[in-house]
Design a protein around this nucleic acid. Structure first.
Length: 462
RNA sequence: GGCCGAGUGGCAGAAUGGCUAUGCAGCGGAUUGCAAAUCCGUGUACAUCGGUUCGAUUCCGGUCUCGGCCUCCA
C-alpha cells in the first residue's frame, strides 16, 4: 500500500517515501498555553493523530513530536492581566490541555518538548545564523535577514515584493529589510527572560520549532504539520532558519496543513466569542452541553482535513448517532487481529481520506446488521478501521450507560428500578403508567428499548 | 490590492471523463401495546457562461459567490 500525502511545498499529492524506512519522523506544532484550547485547535491534533496511527500501521517505528509553546507574549500578557505567575498559568493550561486531548481520543506524542526547556538550543542556532551572516543585531534584537535567502517564500507561494506591499503591520525602524523577522528580543527587568550573548531576552516565535525539531530529528526529517494559518509566516520562517543554519539539508520533506474551522456557520473569532472550547463541549457537568470526545472526533473526521469544516451542534448529534450504531453493531465483540482491511487502508492512504473511510465503515456496519456478512470478519474490519481513526475506544457499556462526570447523572440503580416498575405496569397492560415512566427517564437523558425477548435495555442520550 | 482554496441533492459530505457514494432528514412498508432499535423499498445534485471531447459534475478559460492568508492566530 502506498501512502500519498498532499505536500504544501509542491501543492500536489505526492507518494510518501520516508528518509528512513525504519524510522518515520513527524513534527507537529502544538499549543501556545495561555488559554484552554478551542475546537479549532483540536482539529490538527486529531488529524495528525490519525496520521500517526496510520504511519504506525505501515512502518516499524514512528516518532511523533508535538511541542508546547510556553514562552510567548500572549502568555506574558495573560499572566500579567490576572496577576498570576507565568509558570502557574502555563502549568494549569498544560494540565487542562492534556485532559482535553486525552478525552478526544488522541495518543500521546512520543515527545512533547517545551520551548522553555530548549532556550540553549535556540541560542546556539541563532548564534550559527549570526556567524553565517544570515542574521544581525539591531537595538538588542536579533533579526533574520530575509534577502539572504534567495527563494524565501517558496512554501507560502509569495515573494518579498508581495509581502512588503501587503504588509498590514507597522515595520520596526531597526529592520534592514521590511520582511526581516525576530529571532531574539530583549526583555525588561520585569519580563521573563534568559541570559544570552545579545543580552537578557527571550526567543522569537519561529526559532523554537526549528531548534526543537533539529534537536530531536536532526536537520532533515519527514513530515511537519500544523494548521494552514501557520504556513505563513511561521513555517516559512522555520524553513528559512533551518535551511540557512544547515545549508546541506532540505529540512522537511512533506509539509501538511489542515483547513480552518468555522463555528455554526460563522467565522470563529475570539473577539466575538464565537467559538467553543474543548472543555466546554466536553461538558464539565452540564448535561445539555455534554458531548463525548469521540463525537467531536468523529465529526472532525467527517470532513477531509484540508477542507474547511463548519463545527455545529447538529454535526455532533449526527456523529453521536453514528457512533451509537457502530457500538451497537459491535456489542462486546473484541477481535483478535486489529489490522484495518484493504479498503480502509486505501482510503486513508489517499491523503487521509477519512470521509471515504467512514463511508466504508458504514457499509460494513449495514452488512453486519442486515446479517449479510460473515459477522466476525466484518466486525473485525469495523473495529480495526475505528481503531486507526482513534474511535470506539470505550467498552460497550461505558459508551451507552457510562457517566461522563460524576455529579451529572443519577445512579444507574434508580434507572433499573424504574425499568422494573415499568415492566410490571406493562405486564398489567397499564400502558399509560409504563409510558409515563419512559418519559420520566427520557427527561433524565435515558432512552429505553424493549427487546423482543421481553427485556428492556437503556442508554444515555449524550 | 496580492496570493491560495472552494462552490455537489433538504442538510452534511466523497469519488469520478460515460457506470448506486455514504450518512442524516423525508416518504412508503415490515416489526412494536406505543416507542426505540433494526430491516426492506424510494425521490432529489453537481454555481454560471463558453471551450475541448463521441460524451463533462469531473479537463481548460471567463463570470459570480464564499472562505483563508498577507509578520507572531491551529
Amino acid at each position: 500500500m502506498i501512502l500519498h500525502l498532499y505536500n504544501t511545498l509542491h501543492r500536489a499529492k505526492m507518494e510518501f517515501v520516508p528518509l528512513d524506512e525504519e524510522h518515520v519522523r513527524v513534527y507537529v506544532c502544538g499549543p501556545t498555553v495561555y488559554d484552554d484550547i478551542h475546537v479549532g485547535n483540536a482539529r490538527p491534533i486529531i488529524v495528525f493523530d490519525v496520521l500517526y496511527r496510520l504511519l504506525q500501521e505501515m512502518y516499524p517505528r514512528v516518532t511523533y513530536v508535538r511541542n508546547i509553546t510556553d514562552v510567548d507574549d500572549k502568555i506574558m500578557d495573560r499572566a500579567a492581566g490576572r496577576g498570576e505567575g507565568i509558570n502557574d498559568l502555563t502549568e494549569r493550561t498544560i494540565l487542562q490541555f492534556h485532559k482535553d486531548v486525552e478525552a478526544l481520543g488522541n495518543l500521546k506524542p512520543s515527545i512533547e518538548p517545551r520551548a522553555t526547556d530548549h532556550i540553549d538550543d535556540m541560542i546556539r542556532m541563532i548564534d550559527v545564523l549570526i556567524s553565517q551572516r544570515f542574521a544581525y543585531m539591531a537595538e538588542k534584537h536579533v533579526l533574520f535577514h530575509v534577502p539572504t535567502l534567495a527563494d524565501y517564500g517558496r512554501l507560502s507561494g509569495r515573494n518579498r515584493g508581495e509581502l512588503v506591499a501587503g504588509a498590514r503591520v507597522e515595520i520596526a525602524p531597526y529592520k534592514k529589510d521590511p520582511a526581516d523577522f525576530v529571532l531574539w528580543k530583549p526583555s525588561t527587568e520585569k519580563q521573563v527572560g534568559w541570559e544570552s550573548p545579545w543580552g537578557r531576552g527571550r526567543p522569537g516565535w519561529h526559532i523554537e520549532c526549528s531548534a526543537m525539531s533539529t534537536k530531536y530529528f536532526g536537520p532533515d526529517f519527514d513530515i511537519h504539520g500544523g494548521g494552514e494559518d501557520l504556513i505563513f509566516p511561521h513555517h516559512e520562517n522555520e524553513l528559512a532558519q533551518c535551511r540557512c543554519a544547515h545549508p546541506d539539508s532540505s529540512f522537511v520533506q512533506y509539509w501538511l496543513h489542515n483547513g480552518y474551522l468555522q463555528s455554526e456557520g460563522q467565522k470563529m473569532s475570539k473577539s466575538t466569542g464565537n467559538f467553543y472550547t474543548v472543555k466546554e463541549i466536553l461538558g464539565e457537568g452540564e448535561r445539555e452541553k455534554m458531548w463525548r470526545g469521540e463525537s467531536i472526533r468523529l465529526m472532525m473526521l467527517g470532513t477531509h482535513y484540508r477542507r474547511s469544516l463548519d463545527f455545529t451542534k447538529k454535526g455532533l448529534e449526527d456523529a453521536k448517532r453514528k457512533l451509537d450504531r457502530w457500538y451497537r453493531v459491535l456489542g462486546d465483540f473484541k477481535p483478535e487481529v486489529v489490522s484495518p482491511n484493504e479498503e480502509v487502508m486505501e482510503a486513508l492512504c489517499d491523503d487521509l481520506n477519512t470521509p471515504r473511510t467512514l463511508a466504508i465503515m458504514d457499509a460494513l456496519c449495514s452488512r453486519i446488521s442486515a446479517g449479510r456478512e460473515e459477522a466476525s470478519e466484518a466486525r473485525g474490519s469495523l473495529y480495526a478501521g475505528a481503531r486507526v481513526l482513534g474511535l470506539l475506544q470505550y467498552d460497550n457499556e461505558a459508551w451507552f450507560q457510562g457517566v461522563m462526570s460524576t455529579d451529572a447523572y443519577e445512579e444507574g440503580d434508580g434507572i433499573e428500578s424504574l425499568i422494573a416498575q415499568r415492566l410490571a405496569a406493562r405486564q398489567e397492560r397499564n400502558f399509560d403508567a409504563a409510558d409515563s415512566i419512559r418519559n420520566t427517564l427520557l427527561h433524565r437523558g435515558v432512552v429505553l428499548e424493549d427487546k423482543p425477548d421481553g427485556t428492556t435495555i437503556w442508554r444515555r442520550t449524550t
